[in-house]
Design a protein around this nucleic acid. Structure first.
Lengths: 246, 246
DNA sequence: ACGACTTTGTGCGTACGTTCACAAGCGCGT
DNA sequence: ACGCGCTTGTGAACGTACGCACAAAGTCGT
């Protein structure tokens, strides 16, 4: 970084100075992992940690970690490392976890129930503000401290509770319809568990989690490993199959 | 591709010819999406499809799709497109879905139940071969057509049923231990839902799905959008606005 | 007070992924 | 039979991400 501007001469003032405009997506995707490791370190009583150690805990290279942290203008101390609590705070702020985000979950099937009961949300600043379902048999049911409401209330729920994030846990057949309703209600961040490619207008972020996709990717590698080892066996032991080694 | 070898003069013979060694990870990650789109097309009765249309259905650019398919030596017909059924078969084979993969799920909490009840597995060639849990209260319970067994049976289950893929749906505290047991039993592909970085020896593939991470990534973008739009409002239109129409 | 050691922050080279643009190939109409 | 238009497959350019290696910067010991 060229030091031609005087923006970060002061060590750590109250002014954020940098609107931290350009954080690479790959970095953002790793920040939660760092944050989790830092929280574990806090509980274990560590005060400072080196990039090497933290990178080890997060499963990345130390250079990658340092570059990631540099993107959000983090402050480490040379010769010492990073202060655990301070760094956790910085990452939390960068991720926008300063506030508690209300989340609406649509679809109270097995997965929706799992999401509603997942304690990892509350720990990280997310709160399941409402559970919605299209099935009248499920509407009115109690899940944790929430009552399942009908999906037609979506618009009211979003506006009343100020929901910014929607989680789609419906069957694929109704996912797009639910997505459209979310977008119409003003939700611009959607986490999609339905196995469908959602069509959204620009400005809306969609992240997709597809369990079946993950298994298929694993299947590919498992299959490849099996095949390759077979090929190796054939090639090494008996060289008379009708094929040419690369 | 240089046509210096005579390997694929014949349109579609029984010989696989290409061991398809190097398929980029990014491509592999997209193949399941293509496959799903193709299955939908099959049911809608389409016989052929152009790269443009299929790419649209999968949410990627057409050039990316064509390059992806070229990596697994796919056969399209110039001027026409891809034959839906044939292409689905090719992708299935590339993903190693020719066989039915037995999967063991460890952890029968909310998430484990969701996984066990998820119909998307059976459709794609995966079968939940066993459900395991460490809690004696859950062991012996019936889930679908499976009886929950104790996690100590893991080794026996893996060897008896020939399990190649393990799914960890336990709390984070026991995830590493379960992972070690899976690896010791010979499982080399693991899907991890626990919020922990798993340590595995080389040769073992781990894919991680972390719900909280996904929400935090969404939170980052939501936060950034809010901040930026506020800045824009102040800078451009009205210094005291509440909300921005899209 | 000063030097040596430790660790951060980052320029740079490399590898990868994505997109563009176009030639090669195939079917179809005439 | 032949050319025309359509679509694939791919070379090339661009942008991004990762890792190395080192200078800057701070602490600790003496």
């Amino acid at each position: 970084m060229s030091e031609s501007d005087a923006a970060h001469c002061l060590p750590a003032a109250s002014a954020p100075a940098r609107p931290r405009t350009d954080v690479p997506d790959a970095t953002v995707a790793r920040l939660p992992t760092y944050l989790r490791a830092l929280h574990a370190l806090t509980e274990s009583g560590s005060v400072t940690i080196s990039s090497e150690a933290l990178a080890g805990a997060a499963g990345v290279g130390s250079a990658t970690l340092r570059k990631d942290l540099s993107h959000l203008g983090s402050y480490g101390v040379r010769g010492v490392g990073y202060e655990v609590e301070e760094l956790a705070l910085q990452i939390s702020r960068a991720l926008g976890l300063g506030r508690r985000w209300p989340v609406v979950v649509i679809g109270v099937g097995h997965l929706g129930l799992a999401l509603a009961g997942y304690g990892g949300f509350a720990d990280r600043g997310f709160a399941v503000a409402a559970l919605l379902d299209a099935d009248h048999c499920r509407v009115g049911g109690q899940v944790g401290d929430q009552v399942v409401r009908h999906v037609d209330d979506l618009d009211a729920v979003v506006r009343t509770l100020g929901v910014c994030i929607g989680v789609i846990a419906t069957p694929a057949s109704s996912a797009q319809q639910v997505c459209d309703r979310l977008v119409a209600a003003g939700v611009r961040s959607i986490l999609n568990f339905a196995p469908t490619v959602l069509r959204v207008p620009p400005g809306v972020d969609v992240r997709k989690v597809d369990l079946s996709n993950e298994l298929q990717i694993l299947s590919f590698h498992a299959h490849r490993k099996t095949t390759l080892s077979l090929v190796d066996d054939i090639r090494v032991v008996r060289p008379l199959a009708g094929e040419v080694p690369a």
